[in-house]
Structure formats: structure tokens, C-alpha cells
Nucleic acid binder design. Structure first.
Length: 570
RNA sequence: GGGCCUAUAGCUCAACGGUUAGAGCAGAGCGCUCAUAACGCUUUGGUUCCAGGUUCGAAUCCUGGUGGGCCUACCA
């Protein structure tokens, strides 16, 4: 039995994520996890909230709460929503956990021992009114280049020139508006990524089967300019993992915390410890330590393209640089962005559909199906309400839902609510079995390769076979002359429902459960042998006609939603 | 400025140097009547963004444009 370790990029804590965030990380990761479980493999699927950093502190202040309390609440909110989308994490952890604190400090300690950390003295903008150091982007002023009056400290949004906060004319804090700013000298730790450049380069070069998106971003960072740069891994903040060298204090680093991008990926490992400590599993090391059984684990990460540098370079640098036998990622699946109706999803402007709103409108399966069958794999893709309505109505309601409805209702009216006896499968059934078997092979191939859109296409084609079969077999006609043959045809159709339930579960878990429940079956074994699987429900097996699996989205609803999500979030 | 991705039917996408560029949706026609006005079959529709080039052969490779998107290291 293969073992799959699967992680989704961990969503930031400061609010509810929109569908664009969901489509590139948590959802495809869940799809893959459910598929691997369905194939009978052992899976550990982990996700968490990313809780440290300036934005979390500011969001908490805005909400009028201590940051720890704010994070705890938002974690619960995100966990609830994840459950609503049927994201089947084995554990949904928190980067602020004690486990992650200890592990992050441990890694910093061993990296220091390996001489991969150096101290750098630099100047940072300090705001007296805010009582904190300000990241460059929280400082605005007049652009010295073009005169734009709200240029940010890192870059001017008007002329796109790269800036330094000290370049700005009349700089002020975007948090308080205060102009009482001062450049202060402060010391920070840098991870010497440049020392690991060749090793990382060779490692990326060996990953010839990774998505182009993943490797091209990694190579850009490795080879651009002077090559991979050392990176600051500490910040002057209150909220975060205190800087320590393992269990020891770090002289000169008092009051500082690790940078979120240092501790966030480490949470993948710490999360498995949380999973054990929560009593959900045991022995996390057999997933992470190659000296303790993780050698045969296949580790797959999912993320949007903005996360790629940290997963291809920074985190591997931490892992490899430690000199300890930690499991390194085997495959990085990255996604482009999902746009919303001619523009971008925007958290700040409330443009587009957010995860909580989506679930208020329609159940998870509708969203899961559309998002995965339109996943932005080769380029950015676009959500439009017209496309959503058409795809969901056609694929789910008409092709799959109606198939289940027509065969179960026909059986009930002619034979009653049990699998009818009589007749035998013949050439027509053999042909359908052959066709489904071929399609299933393709489906498995795409799912193994995490080709999400192509897998969805194949699955849909398998659903279509059911309707084609019914049309050709026409049990409603056969029944008049030859009820025995009609019985065999209906038996075949009913068995298809169970098979569809199993194959469709990664995409539409709720409908899958509803189909199995209707068929009164709890046999979820992967149908490797389609012929056998289509005889699993034997003569006399009782079933129930389910409620319609999917309702249709009306034109009125579509127009209503289009208006509602165009502007600001209420 | 630099780099990467992308442009194929009205729409969303396949095709990764090799028959006549395919599929779903939308449109048209026919059939079916079990079913959620559902299903099936047939079918219309393409100067593969533009201009050159390489090749026996180019949507695919090269060069130069044009449009769209992303990244560029202190947001995470």
C-alpha cells in the first residue's frame, strides 16, 4: 500500500478566503487526498492556518482583540468553512502551536550549527505613533521618480519603480497616518540560501516531471541577477515564534520573532505532531523522517503560484541545510490564478465570491465541480456566472443527476425498489463495460498525474456513457416485449450508480454519499474490475429513489448573484 | 527595465514536429418518452493573434512584433 503525504499551502489567518485562494491549494489537495484514499492508499493530509506576521496583528487591532484571541477565533471560522467545503484534512493545525514554536526554534538552532545563519545589521523604519517597525509596504509617500502621492515604500504603484522607504518624500505610516518616523538600526538573522544554491539548483533540475510553472519560478530565483540571495528570517514584532537557538536564548535577538515565511512551512511538520497530540494518529515521524520509515512516502504539495519560491527554495533550504534526515517534497503542484468576471478577485474591495458566501448560496459539490473542472493549470482562468450556471446545470444536474433519477424511477415504477431479477448481460453491456474500463484507465492516469481538468473531463465522459447506454438499451421499450431483458438492463443501470458514486467521490463527495445511500451500499472499494463492479448489487438488493442530486441554477438567481458579488462585501 | 506564462470554433479548453486541427457548452436538424423542458444521434462553425524563417511536413521549432496575465526577494 502506497503512502501519500499531502499538504495544502496554509491560508493566512486575516479573514475568509475567496474562491481564487481555494482553487489553487486546499481544493486540489483534497481532490488528490480523496482519490488516493479511494484507491486504498494510506494518506496523511494536512493543512493549517498561517497566523504570524504584521497583517494578523493589524487585523486583530482592527477587530479590537488581542492577536492570540483573534487568531483562535479566525482559526475556528476557517475550520468551519473548510468543513463546509468537505476538505478532508486529517488535521487542520495552527502555525502558532507550541509544536511549531519548538520545531521552528530547533531548525534555527541546527541551521546555525551548520553555519547557514548570519547576523546582519540594517536600518528599518520605526514609527513612534504605531510603536512598531513598519514593513516597507506600510509606508507611503510621494514618489521621487514620478511624483505620485501614494507610492509605497517597496514600489511605486504608478511608475512601478522599485523604491526604498527612505527615498519617499514626506513618508507616513499607512496604519496611523503618522509622519513621526525614524530609521533605526536593528539586527536580524539571515538564512544563507546562497550557500545552498548549487544543491537546490541540481535538485530542481532533477524534477523534470514538475509543472513548468513550478520549475520556471524556481529557476528564475536561482539564476536571476546575482543568483539566490540570503534571506532575512527574523522580524521586529511581538506576534510570532520567539527567536531562539533550539532551547537556548539567542544573544542579541531578544524581543524578535521569526519571519512568518520561515515558520509557516515548518508547520507542515509540526501539524503532524499536532495530529498525534490531538489523538487522531500516532507516530508522525514515519511520515517525515527518512530514517524512521518515511523513505517510502510520496510527498505532494499544492499551492498557488505566489507560494512557489518559498516551497521550491526557502523551505528546502531549511530541510536540506539542517543536515537531518527530513523528508523532502517529491512533487509540487502549482496553480495559476482564478479571475472573477473580467478582473481579479479582490479581498480588499470585496470583489468576487468568498468561501462563506459561496456555501450560503449553493452546496459544496457545485463549487467543487466547477472549480476543479476549470482549474487554472496552464494559465489563469476566469469565473463567470454564465459559465458556472451552464457547466453546473449541464454536467451535474442533466448528465449525472438526471441519469440517477431516470433509472431509479423507472425501476421503481416497473419492478419496485429492489434490483430486479431475470435476464443476463449481453453484448451491449459488454460494450459499455469496455468503454468505461478504457475511460477509467485514462481517469486514473490523469488523477495520478494530478491533471485536474483532464480528469474531470474523463469523469464526465464516464457519466455520459450511462445515458448513452440507457438510450440504446431503452428498457422502457424492451419491457413491453421482454421484461426479463429489461430487468437485466435496469440492473446494469442501477449498478452504474454505485460505480459512479465511488469514481466521483473526489470531486463531489456529498453527491457520492447520497448515491451510495440510495443504493444502500457501503462498498466503496475502487472498481478496478468494472465487469465485477457492475454486478456488485445483486438481484433483490433493495434501494431507494433519492431526491434529485442537483437542482438547477435559474437565470434569476444568476443575475441576482452577479449583482450581489460585483462590488463591496456586506 | 528584466524574466516567465499565455493567445486555437461564439464560450471554456485539447492537440507537445506527422492523416482532413479535436471535445464540451452554445446554435441548427432528427430521434426518444424512463427521467430534473431531461437523454441520444447528426450537424453548422477555425487565415490556430500578426509578419517572416527552418523543415519533406509547423498550431507545435526559430526571429521580430501585438494583446492578456504573473513574478521581481520587507504583504503573506
Amino acid at each position: 500500500m502506497a503512502r501519500h503525504l499531502i499538504t495544502s499551502a496554509i491560508p493566512y489567518i486575516n479573514g475568509i478566503k475567496h474562491l481564487g485562494n481555494l482553487v489553487g491549494s486546499q481544493l486540489p489537495a483534497d481532490l488528490f487526498a480523496r482519490y488516493q484514499r479511494g484507491r486504498g492508499n494510506e494518506v496523511l493530509f494536512l493543512c493549517a492556518t498561517d497566523e504570524h506576521g504584521t497583517p494578523a496583528e493589524l487585523a486583530a487591532t482592527k477587530a479590537g482583540k488581542p492577536v492570540a484571541e483573534y487568531c483562535a477565533e479566525m482559526h475556528e471560522v476557517q475550520a468551519k468553512i473548510a468543513e463546509g467545503f468537505r476538505l478532508s484534512f486529517d488535521h487542520f493545525g495552527r502555525s502558532s502551536s507550541e509544536q511549531n514554536k519548538a520545531l521552528t526554534q530547533h531548525f534555527a538552532g541546527v541551521l546555525a550549527e551548520q553555519d547557514l545563519i548570519r547576523e546582519v545589521s540594517e536600518t528599518q523604519m520605526y514609527s513612534h505613533a504605531d510603536g512598531r517597525y513598519l514593513p516597507d509596504r506600510y509606508i507611503e509617500g510621494i514618489c521621487p521618480n514620478c511624483g505620485f502621492d501614494s507610492a509605497r515604500g517597496d514600489q511605486c504603484d504608478n511608475c512601478t519603480k522599485q523604491l526604498d522607504p527612505v527615498d519617499l518624500i514626506n513618508p507616513h505610516s499607512t496604519i496611523s497616518g503618522s509622519t513621526d518616523l525614524e530609521m533605526r538600526e536593528t539586527k536580524h538573522l539571515y538564512l544563507r540560501q546562497s550557500q545552498m544554491k548549487d544543491q537546490l539548483d541540481a535538485w530542481i533540475d532533477s524534477k523534470t516531471d514538475w509543472p513548468v510553472l513550478t520549475t520556471s519560478i524556481a529557476k528564475k530565483w536561482l539564476h536571476d541577477g546575482d543568483g539566490l540571495q540570503d534571506r532575512g528570517i527574523t522580524r521586529d514584532l511581538d506576534w510570532g515564534v520567539p527567536v531562539k537557538k533550539g532551547g537556548e536564548d539567542w544573544p542579541g535577538m531578544e524581543g524578535k520573532v521569526f519571519y512568518v515565511w520561515f515558520d509557516a512551512p515548518i508547520e507542515y511538520i509540526a501539524c503532524s505532531q499536532e495530529w498525534v497530540d490531538a489523538g487522531k494518529g500516532e507516530d508522525w515521524e514515519r511520515w517525515w523522517r527518512t530514517d524512521k520509515g518515511a523513505d517510502d512516502v510520496t510527498y505532494t504539495q499544492f499551492m498557488g503560484k505566489d507560494n512557489v519560491p518559498f516551497h521550491t527554495l526557502s523551505f528546502p533550504c531549511t530541510i536540506l541545510g539542517s543536515g537531518e534526515p527530513w523528508k523532502l517534497v517529491d512533487y509540487i503542484k502549482s496553480f495559476n490564478y482564478l479571475n472573477y468576471d473580467g478582473g481579479q478577485f479582490s479581498t480588499s474591495r470585496g470583489r468576487g465570491v468568498f468561501m462563506d458566501q459561496a456555501l450560503e448560496i449553493l452546496p459544496a459539490d457545485y463549487w467543487r465541480w466547477w472549480l476543479m473542472s476549470h482549474a487554472p493549470e496552464s494559465s489563469d482562468s476566469e469565473f463567470t456566472w454564465e459559465n458556472f450556471q451552464q457547466s453546473v446545470n449541464k454536467d451535474l444536474a442533466d448528465v449525472l443527476g438526471n441519469f440517477v433519477s431516470r433509472i431509479t424511477k423507472f425501476c421503481r415504477s416497473k419492478f419496485g425498489e429492489e434490483v430486479p431479477a431475470g435476464g443476463a448481460y449481453g453484448d451491449r453491456e459488454e460494450a459499455a463495460i469496455k468503454e468505461i474500463s478504457d475511460r477509467l484507465k485514462a481517469y486514473e492516469g490523469f488523477m495520478d498525474a494530478i491533471e485536474v481538468r483532464k480528469a474531470a473531463n474523463e469523469l464526465r465522459a464516464i457519466w455520459v456513457i450511462g445515458n448513452e447506454y440507457l438510450q440504446e438499451a431503452a428498457p422502457w421499450s424492451t419491457f413491453k416485449e421482454d421484461p426479463e431483458t429489461a430487468a437485466a438492463q435496469v440492473r446494469f443501470g442501477l449498478n452504474l450508480i454505485r460505480v459512479y458514486a465511488i469514481l466521483s467521490a473526489p470531486f463531489i463527495p456529498d453527491a457520492s454519499d447520497a448515491m451510495l445511500e440510495a443504493m444502500k451500499s457501503d462498498d466503496k472499494g475502487w472498481p478496478s474490475d468494472i465487469a465485477a463492479a457492475l454486478s456488485a448489487l445483486g438481484t433483490g438488493h433493495s434501494f431507494a429513489v433519492p431526491e434529485n442530486l442537483f437542482r438547477k441554477i435559474t437565470d434569476e438567481e444568476r443575475e441576482d448573484w452577479q449583482q450581489r458579488f460585483a462590488g463591496t462585501r456586506d
